[in-house]
Design a protein around this nucleic acid. Sequence first.
DNA 1: ACCACACTAGACCAGACGGTCTAGTTTCTC
DNA 2: GAGAAACTAGACCGTCTGGTCTAGTGTGGT
Lengths: 191, 191
Amino acid sequence: MTNHDVETPTLMGSKERLVAAALSLFQAKGYHGVAISDILEAADLPKGSLYHHFPGGKEELAIAAVGFIADEVDARLASEFAKNKRAGAVLLELAHECVSWLQRSDYTQTPLLGLLAASPGESALTQAICDAQKRWLARFETALGGTEAAHDKACLALASLEGGISLARMSRSSDLLIRSVTLAALHINQR
Amino acid sequence: MTNHDVETPTLMGSKERLVAAALSLFQAKGYHGVAISDILEAADLPKGSLYHHFPGGKEELAIAAVGFIADEVDARLASEFAKNKRAGAVLLELAHECVSWLQRSDYTQTPLLGLLAASPGESALTQAICDAQKRWLARFETALGGTEAAHDKACLALASLEGGISLARMSRSSDLLIRSVTLAALHINQR
DNA sequence: ACCACACTAGACCAGACGGTCTAGTTTCTC
DNA sequence: GAGAAACTAGACCGTCTGGTCTAGTGTGGT
């Protein structure tokens, strides 16, 4: 969850720039809400470049973007859990990061995958999003002990996070996100 | 939350048919994912009718659709809470209704407002969605006693519901929704 | 110097988009 | 039954969509 600046595109290769621009825009307007021309403008690249790097067009690019954020968050979770932190603490930390994300973008951008959920029905993109969620879920689940109860708690963790983000974005205030996640974290931590 | 069948459109007036068709489609594909022609086809009406009833076009129709579902759920919450049911129980009931909703549509349709979140930035539509969430939140909050802690719990209720729906739709299984909501309900009920 | 290759560049296309407009039809009112 | 108002009907328009295609440019190896 390091650097989503599309403002400094020159430092990245054009493929990375495309992914970064796409991710940022998709997180702000959802898959159907973003035109390819928007992405190209943000990445400052012509059409040819896109279809060279991503012959599959818009959807392949979106899948790459999803994969990128999925990896980033997954790695982050892994490293946090490796420090033997409690799951609730990690959840809270993630939530706070999402808050600053929301605030930085003036509540236009949705962290994680929320807005991408409005993706074409049976597509590979939907599959990619589903995979990402599964991976994150699994991180929490194993960190919580791998039991049946752990699975439940992991579900609550992710749901309260994604749901809270949605509430926060709509109300343009991080308050609701913080409240729901702290409460969830509280419950998750107790055994 | 009674009847979202677009299959029997003849029983409703054309304005209601438009709203029903629009709601159903928006819940399945999000605002930008639905073309006006899709809605007209589903409602079996020509373009003229739409722009007669909704001079504001797509967005005004979407706002009406949001208002419709907002009222329906709000009324439902009011009637449940009037029976002095515990908030956790009402939340669970709502969740189960969402589950059957998801299953009936083979996980194509998202209950409530989830997919509508990907709406144009500062629009009146976004405002309408925000209002709906506020009303639902307020129902839970007052039912929980109106305290600060009640507000927190209300946030968790709604977040776990919306987040759980998103998880469920992606995994094409109601399991994750049920798990997160039951856990949330458990926490909400205890004082 | 040569050439193969990775990449950029953007004109171009067919189709879909949201929205307007005029002409018709039904339905209500008196 | 006449006239007004509510509504239906769909042709039409300008714009924007995702995607293709050809031409060009830079860069590596040999």
